[in-house]
């Protein structure tokens, strides 16, 4: 189990790093094409935009791992350890439910996009590109849930 989680972490990291590298190279190539060969490559800009979505969501997944999401965090800093634990548990489980819902409905939506053969750009169907939404939200929900349980039982654990 632990091996599997580690493997998943490494996979996320590598995909993210590779996406960023690919983004820099593709954007650079597009500029070259435009200034030297006189015209751009029409599929690069829309592809770059999809990569922004992917990088953003995978980055968010990463932030979930280390609990680094933007938050206000007032009560837990003023209260004692018990209040802190209660607040952590509730907010983490809340986040888990929200992510779970977004993931669930996104999954339904991607199915719909598949049925309708929604096109993203050029001839590329939209659904594989959109699949990242239910995937990341589902996994974020799972992580928040595990963290919430860990907070409730007083154990520190990362998933």
């Amino acid at each position: 189990m632990k091996r599997l989680v580690q493997w998943l972490h490494r996979l996320e990291d590598s995909v993210l790093v590779l996406l960023l590298l690919a983004m820099i190279l593709l954007a650079g190539y597009d500029i070259l094409a435009r200034s030297i060969f006189g015209g751009g490559v029409s599929w690069i800009p829309p592809l770059l935009r999809v990569m922004v979505l992917w990088i953003g969501l995978l980055g968010a997944l990463l932030a979930t791992r280390s609990r680094e999401h933007i938050s206000i965090d007032l009560i837990s800093r003023l209260g004692g350890p018990t209040l802190n634990r209660i607040a952590s548990t509730i907010t983490l489980l809340f986040a888990a439910v929200v992510c779970g819902l977004v993931g669930w409905f996104s999954g339904q939506y991607v199915q719909l996009a598949f049925e309708y053969q929604d096109i993203a750009f050029a001839d590329i169907p939209a659904w594989p590109l959109q699949l990242i939404i239910p995937f990341t939200f589902g996994l974020m929900g799972l992580r928040f849930f595990i963290q919430g349980i860990a907070a409730a039982t007083g154990k520190e654990q990362t998933a």
Partner: peptide, 18 residues
């Protein structure tokens, strides 16, 4: 962006559109 007809038109005229 995504204007297939416009793109093909200019490419046929030897113009690489942006």
């Amino acid at each position: 962006e995504g204007d297939l007809i416009g793109e093909t038109t200019f490419e046929n005229g030897g113009v690489e559109p942006i």
